[in-house]
Amino acid sequence: MAFIQLENVSVSFPVYSASNRSLKNRLIQSATGGQIRADTVSQRISVVEALQDINLKLENGDRLGLVGHNGAGKTTLLRVLGGIYEPNCGQVNVEGATVPLFDIALGMDQESTGYENIVLRGLFLGLTRRQIKERIDDIAEFTELGDFLNLPIRTYSAGMQMRLAFAVSTSVVPDILLLDEGIGAGDASFLDKARARLHRFTEQVSIIVLSSHANDLVRNMCNKAILMEHGRIVECGPTEEVLQVYEAQRENAKDRSKQAP
């Protein structure tokens, strides 16, 4: 039983300049504090409000798409859901095993063999060695890489590496899956097989949150969507409605830029 609830969640980032990052400067600053006032004011740390007052509730079977242009806070929201960022204020309540799949090749080591990388990726996904051992044949078979799995993956083509990463990442079914820009899966011949596996994989996951600029992907996968802007949720509802608002917005912006060259 998976469950996500966010209440009044806000996230702000401190933005440090080089001198703010120096302990030496910091100590000198506090020793001379108040004397050179103009200086201390300009050195104050500015804060970027990446998310503001986010309220969100997701239950079993929800597939949520996050749309909005760059810097709208989509990735930050995913990281909050994954427990990577803890918000400054508000409540985050996430129940269920969560897997953030932002980069399916995260942690793969070029010098290690295919098999070693399967183990490595598995550990990243939160499996134990024993659990990985149980699945390793299954994963190896799916990749169709055969004896290549005994070679270091630096000898692989990009597509082959992708297959490996894909096969491992889709071998564990989490309760909650967080995706940034979906999962790519290598060359065309592999694609059909991958699509089938991906379909089966995503079917089993209780909750999916997908952040994407590809509206078609969101349309295909999600039953709910959120439009974000400046760290706020501006539109929330069924996918089609939200996407219409978003697309209309983009059209408007395009027209405006045409009118004012």
């Binding site: 500015s46 970027v48 409000e49 810097g71 400054n88 400046h230």
Partner: peptide
């Protein structure tokens, strides 16, 4: 994303500390 000055009169350091 919008950029704002630190919260009110309180320094972010203090706020962080209280939170933490």
């Amino acid at each position: 994303m919008s950029t704002t000055a630190p919260h009110g009169g309180e320094s972010p350091l203090l706020l962080q500390f209280r939170h933490g």
